[in-house]
Every structure is written in C-alpha cells, then in structure tokens.
Nucleic acid binder design. Structure first.
Lengths: 219, 219
DNA sequence: TCCAGGCTGCAACTTTCGATGTAGCCCCGG
DNA sequence: CCGGGGCTACATCGAAAGTTGCAGCCTGGA
C-alpha cells in the first residue's frame, strides 16, 4: 500500500527538498509536483494522489483555497505545510478540510510520520499549533450541549428547515419567501418549534441552530 | 529544568507503569501519585507540579472535573490519558483546559514526548483523536469571521454589555432588569449596536455574540 | 369507508422589537 | 466658564415576532 503524494510548493528548492525526503521514505512515492495552487488542484484531479502536501503561500491560488477545492471534491487528503503559524492560516486550513498542519521547520521524521497519519485518515498537527487549536476549540464551544438539542429530532421536516433559517438570522418574511409560504405560516412553525424545544424566543433558537451547525441548504 | 509530574490514575498497576516510564526519562521526575480525582486536585495544590498526568475514569472525582479544577486555579498543565477515545471524553477534557489527550496504548516514547510538549505549554494529541478534533472544530466554526466582528471594539461598554445579554437569549425587559435600566433604554442600546455592527436584527447580534464567546458576567 | 392524528398552511390578535427624537450628564479643550 | 461631543437614559410609534383558533391533507387503522 504505497502512499501516493502530490507536492504543492512554489519555491523550487524547498519543493525538491520535500520530494527527496518523501522519496527516501519506504511506502511513500511522490507522483507529482505543482508550483501553484491551480496546478495543484488540476494535478490532484488527474493523478488522484492519496495525499497532497500543500504550502499555504502560493501564486495563482493560495493553499487554503486549493485545500478547500480538493477536499470539496474528496480528491485526496491534504497536509498543510507553512513557515508561519498565524492563526488565520491554521484555522482557515483546518476549516477548509485539511487533515494536518505542519511547520516547515519540522524534521524529516516528523514530516514522514505526519504524511502516514494523514493518509490513513488520522490527524497531524505541530505541537506548537495544537495548543492554539485546543484553546480556540475550548473558547468557541465552552457550553454544555443544551437540553433543547436533545429534542431537535422531534421536529418535523418543515420545522427543522425553518429552524435552520432562523439560525441564519433571517426574518419571518425572508424565510417565507425562501420556503414558499406566507409569513403567517412561518410564524406558526417558529411558534411550534419554540414550544417543542422549550425556548422562549427565536434568538435562543438561533443560538441553538448555531451550536448544532445547522445551515439552510443553499439552493 | 526538570519537569515535575503528578500521576493521577486509579489502577495501581497502570500507575506504576507510568511512573516507571516517566522516571526513566531524563529531565522528568514524578513527584507524586494519586488514585482518585480529589486527591489529585489536593496534591496538585500542595506539590505544585508542572504537569498532571490524568486518567479520565477515576473514583470520587472524574478526570475531566479534576482537570477543570486544576486549570481553573492554574495549578499545572494537564495531560489526559484514557483507554477509550469517546468524543465526550475528548471534547470534555479539552474544554476543561487539558493541554493534551493521549490513549493508553501509546508507546513510552510518545508519552514522554507528549509530557515534554504539554509541560512546555504546547499541545499533544493522539493522531486518531486529532482528526476528530479537527472535524469537530471545522463543524462548530465553519464560518469566516464576520465583518461585524471587526467593529465590536467600537461599541461602548454599555452596548457591549447589552450585546452579551442579547447573545444569552434574553428579552429587552430581562436585560433591563439585570442591568438596572428601563426597557426603553435597552432598546436604544440594541438599536445602536445593530447600527454600528451593520446588523438587521438582534438574532444576528446573538449569533455574533456566540461566535465571539461573549457571556454576561454572571453575578 | 370513515375516522383519528399528525403535518402543513393561513388569518386574526397581542406582545416584543427597533427606529427616532429628545434630554441629562460628564469630560475636555478653548 | 461654557460649549461641544460622546455616553447613557427615557418615551413614542410603526413594524416585526409570537399566540391561538381553524382548515385542508395525507396516512394508517378500525
């Protein structure tokens, strides 16, 4: 089970270094190289590698956007590699679907272990970055799952749909337009779902929808 | 700079194994052992170790609660160790302030590296768990930081306070009672902060408050 | 077949929100 | 001293949100 890797990195010297390191590792084979984001996405489509080693800073299409494109099509796992560990890069890359995040000062051994882990569907994050991910994680979701969440499954399809739209901050008229019903009807659904979830206003419903990650199916 | 470690684990055999592994590592010294959560917290207060190696399942006070107690007092870093990687344990421990999360089947080398990393203020997470943390992270915060967030600092103290209460799902009257002002005044603040943040309803303000982790100072 | 019960839909009516106009207060610079 | 300008505060009024009663529509069972 050889792991096929595509290396996307604009600086030729660094790229060659990565190719050498990975090529020397047993069970890993570099099947392609890209010097910009667009080429990385295109080669990923053609070569179908198991994993793309992706630099963040690249011309034509940055690494985060390229990562999003690749994971959206489920073409391959992505391991992001960068010099700087700005929060924006880290969180952006992980939200874009990256399976790992390493700094370029990692040694060869770490890099190879990370490639193996991510290719296996696991995660790999540089220790210095891990702590910030944990902190951010704890900050953004410090709340115990509210009791209301447990009752969400009791909602009817329509109510569930309305809840998602409420969570997006839409007014009743706006929701009515998108779902093709009168404002009055939307109000009925809102009122009912509030009752079922034991909430007292659409604001609380919106917060709940956020926690659950509900989004109105963009259509 | 020796790292002083407190080992909290109820199974004596496992605990002794951990002590042996850590004791053999250069730069690491085990300064205490605890067989339950309460003792772990108490010993952490007395011994002031650099790091507590904490099992999740323990009598009298579970590892997650003990972790929360220790980090709340900033007594030490905590590295959580468990047999099972249920999401509830992982996310609970990390929200409680743990700096790392390892499975008990980790080898000695991994354990020692993790202890060093967490003691240094970095993070350490088992690869299998990392991926789920990343997924959960991407799920709970898939939204780009809204442009409104940038303008939050322009809010006056009072407005900021009202925003936090809106985020908690309170009505204007309720907010008025808690902050000692008339409903009419609350409305003014809400209206103004909506204007400053370019939002169209309190629902959107509430969602923003959630994203930013704003909470009304419980008092 | 007919009825019960759940889902969806709409139309009053009441309550809450949000916009707007105005006023007191405090601080800072002229 | 006194005149802005920002913050806080309140009242009023039109516009939303939420409640309640009711009516079609299915589906499953008697």
């Amino acid at each position: 089970m050889t792991i096929h890797v595509l290396v996307a990195e604009d600086q030729a010297a660094v790229r060659q270094g990565l190719v050498l390191i990975l090529g020397a590792a047993p069970g890993i084979e570099v099947v392609g190289e890209a010097a910009d984001g667009e080429r990385a996405v295109r080669l990923a489509r053609e070569l179908r590698p198991d994993l793309v080693l992706m630099d963040v800073q690249m011309p034509r299409l940055d690494g985060v956007s390229a990562t999003a494109a690749i994971t959206a099509e489920r073409l391959a796992e992505v391991l992001v590699l960068t010099t700087f560990d700005f929060d924006a890069y880290v969180f952006g890359a992980l939200r874009a679907g990256a399976g790992g995040f390493l700094l370029k000062d990692s040694d060869a051994e770490t890099l190879i272990a990370a490639v193996r882990a991510v290719a296996a569907g696991e995660g790999a994050i540089a220790p210095a970055v891990t702590r910030r991910l944990i902190t951010e994680f704890a900050r953004t979701a410090p709340r115990a799952p509210s009791p209301a969440a447990a009752r969400v499954p009791t909602l009817t399809p329509r109510e569930h749909q309305v809840l998602a739209h409420v969570g997006a901050g839409l007014s009743n008229v706006q929701i009515g337009r998108r779902l093709g019903m009168a404002e009055a009807t939307v109000k009925t659904h809102v009122s009912r779902l509030l009752g079922k979830l034991d909430l007292r206003s659409r604001v609380q419903a919106a917060v709940l929808a956020q926690e659950l990650g509900l989004t109105p199916d963009a259509r």
